[in-house]
């Protein structure tokens, strides 16, 4: 590696570490997110010649996507996003009633997500949580822009079908929360 690589790496790290960490944190728990993020930057360091300095984030997301997928394949599959959502929400400053409503609404939508294919889930997260456009989703997923657009469109429809019409998209009726933690 040349000194130039050091500079490039440092700039990308300083600019995008939080984004990659958040990407991972939306998919696995904090400790694993930190580990996965570090793996992403190790891969970055080893492949400094394979990405676009002007647009590294989709490339980093793509590495993170595959890193997490590999870890999941090698591990047990009981990481529940609901569990991670619960942990993050605990830190919010929302009023208790709002938290209950939000958690229940989150539970419903995340449960619905869990019934979709992994690819559908990922394109929806990229669009909804990373707020990526179709061309950038295409970079992450290594597919054409048209395919990315189609995937997002179809995944939205499938997600909609998984959420009952009786569920109000704004306010869900909260279920009772078990003492000491909650329900899934």
């Amino acid at each position: 590696m040349t000194p130039t690589a050091d500079v490039r790496f440092t700039r990308i790290y300083e600019t995008h570490y939080a984004d990659v960490m958040a990407y991972c944190g939306r998919r696995v728990n904090r400790a694993d997110a930190e580990d996965a993020t570090n793996e992403v930057f190790v891969v970055l360091w080893r492949r400094m010649d394979q990405f676009d300095d002007e647009m590294p984030l989709p490339w980093l997301y793509g590495v993170a996507y595959r890193t997490i997928a590999n870890r999941r394949r090698g591990a047990q599959r009981r990481f529940r996003l609901v569990e991670r959502l619960r942990g993050v929400r605990h830190r919010s400053a929302e009023a208790a009633e709002d938290v209950v409503v939000r958690r229940e609404r989150d539970r419903v939508v995340i449960d619905a997500m869990s019934r979709l294919s992994p690819t559908d889930q990922e394109v929806l997260r990229l669009a909804a949580w990373e707020e990526l456009s179709a061309p950038l989703i295409a970079e992450v997923m290594e597919c054409s822009v048209a395919a990315a657009e189609q995937r997002v469109h179809r995944a939205k429809k499938r997600l909609g079908r998984e959420i009952p019409d009786s569920v109000n998209p704004i306010v869900f009726a909260p279920l009772p929360i078990e003492e000491g933690g909650g329900h899934v």
């Binding site: 944190g25 939508v109 929806l124 959420i163």
Partner: peptide, 16 residues
């Protein structure tokens, strides 16, 4: 639920 509403609900459920 309609697709766009479902997507909005998912966006709002962003854990981070």
């Amino acid at each position: 639920m309609k697709p766009d509403a479902a997507f909005t609900t998912l966006s709002d459920a962003n854990p981070i």
